[in-house]
Design a protein around this nucleic acid. Sequence first.
RNA 1: GCAGGCGUAGUGUAGUCUGGCAGCACAAGGGCCUUCCAAGCCCUUAGCCCGGGUUCAAAUCCCGGCGCCUGCACCA
Length: 557
Amino acid sequence: MSDTRISIMEIAKRRGFYWKAYEIYGGLGGFYDYGPLGAMLKENILRIWKEEFVIKDGLLMLDGPNIGPELMYIASGHAEKFADYMVRCKKCGHVFRADELLKGVVENPEKLDKKGISKAIKEYGIRCPDCGGELTEPESFHLMFSTTVGLDKRAFLRPETAQGIFVNFPIMYRLNREKLPFGVAQIGKGFRNEISPRQGLLRLREFNMAEIELFVDPYDDSILNDFEDVELHLLTRNGEELKLSPKEAIGRKIMNPHIAYYMAKIVKFLDSLGIDLKRVRFRQHFKEELAHYSQDTWDCEILISSGWVEVTGIADRGDYDLKSHTTYSGKDLTAIRRFKEPKKIQIKKLRPRMEILGPMFKKDAKKIAEMLENMEYIEGDVEIEINGKNVKIPKDAYEIKIEEEVVGGERFIPHVIEPSFGVDRILYAILEHSFYEREDTGYKVLKLKPKIAPIKAAVFPLMAKDDLDTLAIEILNKIRENGVPSYYDDSGSIGRRYARADEIGVPFCITVDYESLKDNTVTIRERDSANQKRLKIDDIPKILKDLVEELIDFESL
RNA sequence: GCAGGCGUAGUGUAGUCUGGCAGCACAAGGGCCUUCCAAGCCCUUAGCCCGGGUUCAAAUCCCGGCGCCUGCACCA
């Protein structure tokens, strides 16, 4: 493990950013607690996310349940993976899907249960296709956590928040007053029963996601909003490495314009979180790497000590999800594409002549008449299915009339662009990119930006006596009153207190000294430069708030 | 899940081979001292991952479990 990662893990636990969950019971792999600092840091990241992606673009937020019905996950394609059995080669360690190995050997291998697979492998002497080694007993491979709702209804914990958005498409579409493009954002937990989660926050079984489903008309390239033309570091699936602006990338048709739009926003977002943009790139998935629902996917990757890690994926899901949910639910999940001007369409309609139909079809005549009225006439014989039989309707039993209809638009299934953010990974990357050791002393510092730092200010009395302490506490209370997370510390030397604050990324320290008693001023110290300015105590709450919101910068004081 | 390594105060570690009073540093709490960048002194709190076995005696040896790290595999 890299030194940086070791230091971060150590600080995270000792100072309270995060730690393995359930430690008193020996821990549970892939589950972490966020402590006081981590919980605040996560909130700050999400607040900025909402500002950048939800508020600025007028997206709609949604907050749905974690548990979803089985049928929804059958429709989404996730459940298909649920019942797979895997076998591994005892010799070379390669893993295979049991049903793949048994294809052509037994009939319907996918229908076998664990015992059946085990029996078939032994009976037919199936061995490792790579090295001929012996295979292990089959193991079920559950990617989703399953549970039961009520007595016996099968359900799953969501592996992504996306499905909860798709199934609400009609409501959200209406709430957006039926305009495209529009996006729905959801922040929440996702659950995946990983085989072997490792690397701390980078691979969790229960994780925090922030997802957007942008619903677009595939024939309309207009993007949500204007954007800053930043430089993107791209790695295409052809192996090309490019430095392009999103506008150039769109021009060269490297990706969908909506994807380029989100790339620009992501770069800006990561920058505002303190991620080093030199260590950010977008990597296009290889065809075989694409998820079952995806047509094109670009991962935003950040370089950390263990290599490039995916923190955000932008997937072009096409109409996969809405189409599939339409099939399984039987509900209409379409949008309307309005014509610039309503079109007048001439439709040939049928008018039933009851005096002929009546005697001919008796009881069925009424039903047939209704069906004829609702039909569009196409040249040729008219046939109707009634009581399971096709019946030819004689020409004299109807008249053809031409009706004019005004059509405002046509219905279609919107396409979906999905930027999906792994909040835990972003949080970890921020910690790594923020971490450094002071050149002179080697003391550890997190250079967290004021906006995201969990604690914004620390207030110290130079000495914990002579009323310096009471004045410091007064100042602390004023700052807290003003909504700025802060703490008081009078233990140890002043230098130790600065160091303690630096280690958890407190950007500003306020020190009450003997001059404070004379002229009502205090010093304020900026973390990274260790520079100090002297300010009036009365001005502190306002100035500190502006510093924390990054409206002013320390050097300008 | 496999292979290898590992698990000792809040954190980092020594001790494990060769069984015999569990030690150090930092942190934390209290006190003295101290007028701006982890000073010093005194005191205190606090630990052998869990379970079983062997033994007069287990942090140490054996078995099982849990967890972590690295590699393989997996990561829609």
